[in-house]
Design a protein around this nucleic acid. Structure first.
Lengths: 137, 137
DNA sequence: CTGAATCCAAAAGGATACTG
DNA sequence: CAGTATCCTTTTGGATTCAG
């Protein structure tokens, strides 16, 4: 399958719906939340401690966006204090499967990328252009 | 390097190599460049005009990062003025195939997402409080 | 516990000028 | 043409505080 139908919308136009969707999911925290919630239901605090580096503000913001897109379901239990659970919707689970492909790719090509980075560094560190020459002063 | 324990890396840790790779490719412009260059070679200016909304600065920056990761090959032809062509490496083409899956997903679920957004708007405009509640027993 | 609001620092990104 | 360098505005995001 070649899915050339996408080309009817010119993928590279900012008005293209597909691109607007990509703009949303091509996001660090969104991807990590998707991965965290795959086949699971987690509370806010569990999500926060599982995703290292995310702040309360960013997690909330990310979850709101994902809820808006229909990826996650937010359920509030009127306990004291309140309990809030997040889970993926069918749409979210579907996206998770796709993101898994990307994660798998990243995992499989990790070392190739690391090698490329080292090689690039070595190549650009040796810039033969106008290097600083005042160090002898 | 010995004693990797790579398989034990928690995906959600910021130090996880897989996550560092994702942080790089989970990026708007990187994805769009990948898509633009799939099976093609384009000059800088062609790339710029094809990807609506990207500035010269961001495109340069994105391309440098992708070159560093080994996704794109930059070829300079010493013409006057200079000609620079960008193409995907094998690694980049491999990534492109994976990104295609995501694009396909986005395309296929566009309308579902748009519907969800409208529904969310309608729901949050009406309900300033919690949307869903369940019995806590 | 979950999360909204505010303030502020840092990063991202645009515009412009200049170079080979 | 394809950048680099700089300035400056916008956006992002962290820390803190407060509330249901």
């Amino acid at each position: 399958m070649s899915d050339h139908g996408v080309l009817r919308w010119n993928m590279m136009k900012s008005a293209c719906p597909t691109r607007q969707v990509l703009d949303r999911i091509a996001n660090k925290w969104t991807m990590l939340v998707i991965m965290s919630l795959e086949d699971k239901t987690l509370r806010f605090s569990e999500l926060r401690s599982r995703i290292e580096g995310v702040s309360q503000k960013m997690l909330t913001q990310t979850l709101r966006g994902m809820e808006s897109d229909g990826f996650v379901l937010r359920t509030v239990y009127p306990t004291v204090p309140v309990t809030v659970e997040y889970s993926l919707t069918d749409l979210g689970e579907s996206l998770a499967k796709t993101v898994d492909v990307l994660r798998g790719w990243a995992y499989g090509h990790m070392s190739a990328i690391e090698d490329a980075r080292k090689e690039y560094l070595a190549r650009t560190e040796t810039l033969p252009s106008e290097a600083q020459m005042r160090d002898a002063g």
